[in-house]
Structures are given as C-alpha cells and as structure tokens.
C-alpha cells in the first residue's frame, strides 16, 4: 500500500550523507585525479596514441590485465572458501589464521615482493622443489600472478566474511526443514546472498592487482614484451622526465579499471535485484 512509497522517505539523513560523500570524494579523489587528466591533455592526439599504443605498452597491458584476471579469479574461489571456513568451522589456530589474512595489507609491498622472490626463486624454499618439476615461478609471468594473488586475497575474504557472519542461520534451518539438501541450501539460499560481496571482493582484488607495482617488480623478471607490467612502464616514463607520457598510460589504465569496476558494480546491483525477487 502506501507503505512502499514511504519507504524512501522514512529513513533520515539522505541529503546530508550523500552531500558529504560527494564532497569528501571530490576533495580526496576526484580533484587530485583530475590532475592526471589535465597533464595528459597537454599531449596532442598523435603523441597520446604513440605513448599508450606502442608495442611494448600493448604487451604490458596483456601481461597486467591478464594476470590480474587470473589472480582475482583464484582469489574469488579460495577467498570465499577461506571466509566460509573461518566463519563456520572450528579448528585449532583459527584466530591466528583469521589475523593472518590481513598480512598482505600489513606487509609493505616491497617486502612482500622480496619475500615471495626469495621463496620461489630457484634457490628458495619452494622454488628449489618446483624447479625439478620444470615449474619456474620467480622471474616469469607466473611470479606476477603469485604476487597478485598474495596482495588481493584479503579483499575477497574481508568483504565476504562480515556478510557470512551476519547471515541468519534460521534461513538455512528453514531451508533444510523444507527438504533442501545442504548443497541446494548453499547454492539457492546462501550463494545469492553472498554474491554481491563476492563480486565486490573480486573487483577490488582485480583493481588492486592491476595497479600493483612494489611487490611485482621483485618477482617478475621485468623482461620487455613478456613479463613487464604497465606500472613499470609508467615509472620508466617518469625516469625520462616524461610526466605527460606517464599520465597518459596511467589514464588508460584508470579508464579500463573504472569501466570494469563499473560493470561489476552494475552486475552486482542487478544480481541483488534478482536475489530479492
């Protein structure tokens, strides 16, 4: 009845909270980021194209976005699993494991890179065991993925975890009372509720991986055309005092990530509406 229409008006604080959000967003993010666009705009169109579409740059997009996708997908699967295990099961050392999940945030990215390189290099703990099997991780594109998985993992776990924690188990009980199997309950009831959080986690892990620099350069090998990531090319441009060229590549990366994030956020909205019905 009338209740439905009043829903939007009932809760207070929409105006001020949205206003503050937009204000703070502009001051902290949008205005500083606009510097990027203004600097890029000092280039002519031809210069811009040469800067962002040189063969080495194109190859670096493939490496960066491709590895980030794989890493985010791996994190999407294992992150949800870790979150599930942490919220639902009991095992010794659980609290410790829970805290460990934040490690990739707490560890400076450079340290992470150095550490991963030392573990996976041919004389490292794991590298020396993988090498005889013909698997090389450090200084290859696989190394890039390993570093990206490392830095992206907390995003998925930490976005899914609170949702799982707040989930009312009565719904599950009800589902199972109605004869649903455990798998059906998960697939039909739990998964749709978790999906927005999973997608958010995936998107954030992906976006973070695309921009990552510090941890990757130590393990990537950085060979042009095969294991050179785009942020490294930005640094290369900076070393030559080519700020405009650097911002041009940064702008392209930003736009691509923005579009990807936007589509995932739209998908998420759609999936929520789907789940509601």
């Amino acid at each position: 009845m009338g209740l439905f229409r009043r829903k939007h008006a009932v809760l207070p604080g929409f105006g001020p909270s949205l206003g503050y959000t937009i204000f703070y967003l502009s001051v902290v993010v949008l205005i500083p980021l606009s510097a990027l666009f203004f600097k890029t705009a000092t280039l002519s169109w031809d210069q811009f194209v040469t800067a962002v579409a040189a063969p080495r740059v194109l190859a670096s997009y493939r490496v960066t976005f491709g590895s980030a996708l794989v890493a985010a997908a791996v994190n999407g699967v294992f992150g949800v699993l870790v979150a599930w295990v942490l919220v639902r099961y009991r095992f010794p050392g659980k609290k410790l494991i829970d805290a460990l999940v934040d490690l990739p945030f707490a560890l400076p990215t450079a340290v992470a890179g150095i550490t991963l390189a030392s573990i996976y290099s041919a004389n490292g703990w794991l590298g020396s065991r993988l090498e005889p099997l013909g698997i090389k991780v450090a200084f290859t594109p696989v190394g890039i993925m390993v570093a990206m998985i490392f830095i992206g993992l907390p995003f998925v776990v930490r976005t899914v975890q609170p949702v799982l924690e707040e989930l009312d188990q009565e719904i599950e009980e009800a589902a199972s009372c109605l004869g649903a199997s455990r798998w059906q309950t998960f697939y039909r009831v739990l998964f749709p509720t978790m999906l927005p959080a999973i997608l958010t986690g995936f998107a954030l892990a992906f976006a973070r991986a695309v921009g990552e620099y510090g941890s990757i350069i130590f393990i990537a090998g950085n060979m042009p055309m095969e294991s050179e990531i785009t942020p490294l090319l930005i640094i290369t441009k900076l070393e030559q005092y080519d700020y405009a060229g650097a911002t041009a590549i940064a702008t392209v990366m930003l736009l691509v990530s923005f579009l990807l994030l936007l589509s995932i956020n739209m998908l998420q909205k759609w999936s929520r509406r789907f789940a509601d019905n």
Binding site: F139, F218, G221, N222, M223
Partner: peptide, 10 residues
Amino acid sequence: VPVLDSGARG
C-alpha cells in the same frame, strides 16, 4: 640477460 631489475642494488 634473464632478469632486468629496476635498480643497481636490486
């Protein structure tokens, strides 16, 4: 050259 580090110390 198998690895191109970004700096001399690296």
